[in-house]
């Protein structure tokens, strides 16, 4: 790939999705953009880039950005965050919110829905404690195509076998033709989805008690990480919790969060200090 083409694409991805593309990821461009080129009737990625330089329609821009977005996910990914949520964070918030009886949870990179549905199943397992509560789970993602998959909630045999205990699979999924499994309507209805780019203002999403923003920041450069985290702080209740991915941290990125007592989660830093987060 010509260096000016790489610079053009890297610039586009940075401004549109925050993805910090480095030269060592050139192979990703080749494998992911070739299908987009073919979709537009073009033979090579060079031709695709020439088309983009000539007439970059919103649809073409979106197709390229979505093709470059990593959607790796699984049910109950990394296990521990969900154990912390169930064993520590949820009991704490249920006590603090017992008057209002409302919880709002944001999944800030919902991908194909495995994370928000994992949270929904976890909540369903706590249905006795949550009787009379209003629990809202909102999944957002940049990629509209992946959100459509999330809304459908239909997964391949491989996908339902990664991270999902079989007992939960038979309890919360229906068998479908062609070795696929559909999340049951009662769980699907617990989650709403909305297209949202973390680089853009998202204050209209409202305030949340728990934010999952896992395995997203790793793709951003340092200033973008700080910007996103600082704005997530604005959407998190002062006694709320932020969950990041295993390879992500707030340390040396922002002062707005501090590690909570629950490993892997952060809380907003108390006003008497400066900011807060959960790890």
């Amino acid at each position: 790939m010509e260096s000016q083409d790489f610079i053009f694409l890297a610039g586009l991805l940075k401004t549109q999705s925050g993805l910090a593309l480095t030269m060592d990821k050139t192979y990703l461009l080749n494998s992911r953009l070739q299908p987009v080129a073919e979709q537009y009737g073009l033979k090579t990625i060079s031709e695709l880039i020439a088309r983009m330089r000539a007439t970059l329609t919103p649809q073409l821009r979106q197709d390229v950005v979505e093709a470059m977005t990593t959607n790796e996910t699984s049910f109950f990914r990394d296990v521990k965050p969900f154990e912390h949520l169930k064993d520590h964070v949820l009991p704490e918030l249920l006590e603090r919110r017992k008057q209002r009886r409302q919880l709002r949870i944001l999944c800030a990179a919902a991908s194909s829905g495995q994370e928000p549905y994992s949270i929904a199943m976890l909540m369903a397992e706590q249905s006795a404690r949550l009787a009379g509560w209003n629990v809202e789970i909102l999944g957002i993602d940049l990629d509209t195509r992946i959100l459509k998959r999330a809304e459908e909630g239909v997964y391949s045999q491989f996908e339902v076998q990664r991270g999902l205990p079989v007992q939960m699979m038979v309890k919360y999924f229906d068998e479908r033709p062609n070795q696929t499994w559909a999340i049951k309507p009662q769980i699907r209805k617990m989650v709403r989805y909305r297209q949202c780019n973390l680089l853009h203002p998202f204050a209209d999403l409202g305030q949340f008690d728990i934010i999952f923003c896992r395995n997203v920041l790793i793709y951003f450069d340092h200033p973008t990480k700080r910007d996103v985290l600082d704005r997530l702080d604005g959407q998190l209740a002062r006694d709320g919790f932020l969950f990041l991915g295993g390879a992500e941290t707030v340390i040396d990125v922002t002062q707005r969060f501090v590690s909570s007592l629950h490993r892997g989660a952060y809380t907003p830093r108390p006003a008497t200090e400066t900011v807060r987060a959960v790890a």
Binding site: F158, Q161, R162, P165, V170
Partner: peptide, 25 residues
């Protein structure tokens, strides 16, 4: 699958499977 769980299976892998699925289970 339900019958296997009822008989006391702890987990269930549907073939074909790969190392990711086996490790996850």
């Amino acid at each position: 699958i339900s019958a296997a769980i009822a008989e006391g299976a702890d987990e269930y892998i549907m073939k074909p499977f790969d190392e990711d699925v086996l490790a996850s289970k």
